[in-house]
């Protein structure tokens, strides 16, 4: 799925009422199956850009087209459906839903959108095994280590076979072994043709060899 961002801008008011321009007149094209690395200091707008791409927040102006569809024109429920079908998210922390076990977290998005296919449990088990979490399928999030939780989040992306993967500092709180496991999983996603947009300071990710690098400083694209 190609992603095209045209003249996008997004600003927020902080608690004291001051307007902060996070994204300013951004133009960007990402080809289907390519890898985009977003660079920038903390507060430069990396997360905001990912939220804009996923349709979680709408740009104040400009448009975001994914696969030819202007997502800002979609209704909230259409955006939800679109996200559930196409976009996988991996955050630095807090990736799992606490009411559900590891395996349930893997297929939760599909379950909530009523799109589970026969054999889903076997598939989820297989994926958990592939990310090194065999035997942890029934563990609740609060019984897993930070690294294990990140791997469950990656397993969820692998299960959903999302066409676009947004990874926001996915290995920032992980040790080297866990970071490698997450990286390997993202490589698998690349193998099945997913577009990967990531922000990371982790050296391991250098091997992902991005097709594009977007540098953001405060207020817009550098």
């Amino acid at each position: 799925m190609d992603i095209k961002i045209t003249e996008a801008a997004k600003s927020f008011k902080n608690r004291s009422g001051k307007v902060l321009e996070i994204i300013k007149d951004l133009n960007l094209e990402i080809k289907s199956g390519s890898v985009l690395k977003i660079e920038g200091a903390s507060g430069s707008g990396k997360t905001t850009l990912m939220n804009v791409i996923s349709g979680l927040i709408s740009p104040d102006k400009g448009k975001v087209e994914i696969g030819g569809v202007d997502i800002s024109l979609l209704s909230e429920s259409e955006k939800d459906r679109f996200r559930a079908e196409n976009i996988g998210y991996i955050f630095q922390t807090f990736n799992l839903l606490s009411p559900f076990s590891a395996i349930e977290n893997v297929y939760a998005p599909a379950a909530f959108s009523g799109k589970l296919k026969p054999g889903y449990k076997e598939k989820a088990l297989e994926i958990l095994k592939s990310v090194g979490l065999e035997g942890f399928e029934k563990s609740m999030p609060y019984h897993l280590s930070v690294g294990q939780r990140q791997r469950v989040a990656v397993a969820r992306v692998l299960f959903s076979e999302n066409k676009i993967i947004l990874a926001d500092e996915p290995t920032a709180s992980l040790d080297k072994v866990s970071s490698k496991a997450v990286f390997d999983s993202l490589m698998k996603c690349r193998e099945f043709g997913a577009t990967i947009i990531f922000a990371s300071h982790d050296e391991t990710f250098k091997e992902l060899s991005p097709d594009q690098v977007l540098s953001l400083d405060k207020g817009g694209a550098a």
Binding site: L56, A84, L97, F112
Partner: peptide, 16 residues
């Protein structure tokens, strides 16, 4: 709120 926000990012609708 945080968990609900995560649900939204996973495509789980406001309705659910």
């Amino acid at each position: 709120k945080k968990e609900m926000a995560l649900m939204r990012t996973l495509g789980i609708g406001r309705g659910a």
